[in-house]
Each structure stands twice: as C-alpha cells, then as structure tokens.
Design a protein around this nucleic acid. Structure first.
Lengths: 129, 129
DNA sequence: CTGTATCCTTCGAGATACTG
DNA sequence: CAGTATCTCGAAGGATACAG
C-alpha cells in the first residue's frame, strides 16, 4: 500500500481530487462531437438527420453513440414518434442546457486568448528551426 | 461573470463557428493529463519528476508531450538550469493561469450536477435491463 | 428515417531502453 | 534528472450493409 500525499494543489488551492472530477467531466463532454451536438441542440429540438447535416463531418455511427451518451447522462431527451418512416427528435434537458453556461464561459476565454495562443505557437515553432 | 443566453454556444447561421472554436479549445486543453498538469502547476513552479509524482499514473513520455504542448501554446514556461544533473522547472504563464478561471467554473458545474448525472445513468441503465 | 452490427484502419499511449 | 526514440497493442472511429 503506497502512501499518497493528499496535499496536492489543484485549481485555486483546491486539492487533487478536483482535478480528477474535472477530468471526468471532460471525459464526458470534452469530445468534439458531443460539443457539436450540444451546440446544435442549444437552438431547440432537432431530428437525427438534421443534426447530422448541421454538424457536418460526423459519421452516422458516431452521432448515434454521441446522442446515446448524452441521453444516458440525462443531458438530452430522445422522443421517437412511431410513424413510418420513423421520426426521432432530440432536445436538451434542463441539465443539458445548464451545461451551456460554463461552456459559454470557456468559449469566451477562447475568443479572448486565441490570438495569444496563435502567437505563442508561432514563436515556439520558429525557435525550433 | 455574466451568463449569456444559451444560443451563444452555437449560432446556426454561422455554420457552427463557435462550436468549432470550442472544439479546438477542448482539443488543446481537454485531455486528462493537460488538466492534471495545469492543476498541479496552479500551485506554483514544479520540477519534472515532482510533477510526475504529483499527477500519478502518467507515463514519462506523456508528461513530456503534455508539457511541450502547453509550452507551445504559451500556457507554461519551461526553465532549464544547466546543472548536473539537470534541473528543469515548469510554471504557468499568465495565460495559463487565466485558464484556471473557466476551468474552475466548469468544475463547479460538475460538483453541482454530478449527482444528477449519476442518477440519470442509473435510470438509463436500468431501463436497458 | 433511424438504429445496429461488423469490419478494418488508424492513432494514441504505455513500456522500454538509451543519451546528455 | 530530464528528454528522446522505438515498438507494440488496444481502442476509437469511419465505412458499409442491413434491419425495423
């Protein structure tokens, strides 16, 4: 049994456990297609194929898996109408909508600092031939 | 911190430009080790091996790659002391520290809603035997 | 239209060993 | 101590075909 230090500093003087939780959150919602799906649905309910067209570049299979994951986590509600051909609508739940707030803040950060990052990259890449 | 309407995440008539930017941000900073490294460094400068011990479970190679990426993006400053054996210190730049703010907000969201997500998962898994 | 199953390729990441 | 280079394996994700 190894002894682990507990006093690991994390975000804003919190402990290491916080980082792990953050990692879990990002595991859930941090991937490309999940973000795109949440973004697309933030405007209102949408059908499967419409989502696929809106997002663009996503495979049939990955969109299905992404939506299943969001549904499982309670972020998206799936409503199937037993018509022929079938019609399925997806929409954000209140939980899903609540996610858009921290994401919007992260987006603001990105918009504010993307230039800085771009510059830093160029400098870094220059300094390596 | 002002909370803007959810539509800020993704404006449909902009072809998901916002989503794409958000996707790029998450590509950069959304992976497990990057978060852990930023978290660990948020407490102050740290040497390579100390970082590795603090983070725990990260391979030598991945920590190196993670730190290179952060350095390239201007989030981390690397300072090498030409001693024998070598000593290298890593620390967050102002840009890197600024990232901890939106991350802390995302973390708060996670803390607030993790129970809800857990419940949703159990319900979903139950409904599929 | 929507969902699932299968195949197949690619890529990420750990292990390891070696260098300065 | 810190960094780099290979090797390898397994998982992620696209393409495709088929079903309801």
């Amino acid at each position: 049994m190894t002894v682990r230090p507990v006093e690991v500093i994390c975000l804003e003087d919190q402990q290491h456990e916080k980082c792990k939780l953050l990692g879990q959150i990002l595991d859930r919602i941090g991937d490309k297609w999940t973000i795109m799906a949440v973004g697309a649905l933030s405007g209102g309910p949408m059908r499967f194929n419409e989502l696929m067209r809106r997002i663009g570049g996503v495979s049939h299979r990955m969109l299905t898996l992404t939506l299943r994951g969001l549904e499982r986590d309670g972020m998206v509600r799936r409503t199937a109408y037993p018509t022929i051909p079938p019609k399925v609508e997806y929409e954000l739940t209140p939980l899903g909508r609540s996610l858009t707030e921290p994401l919007a803040i992260l987006l603001q950060w990105g918009e504010k600092h993307s230039g800085e990052i771009e510059t830093a990259r160029n400098v870094f890449d220059q300094s390596r031939n």
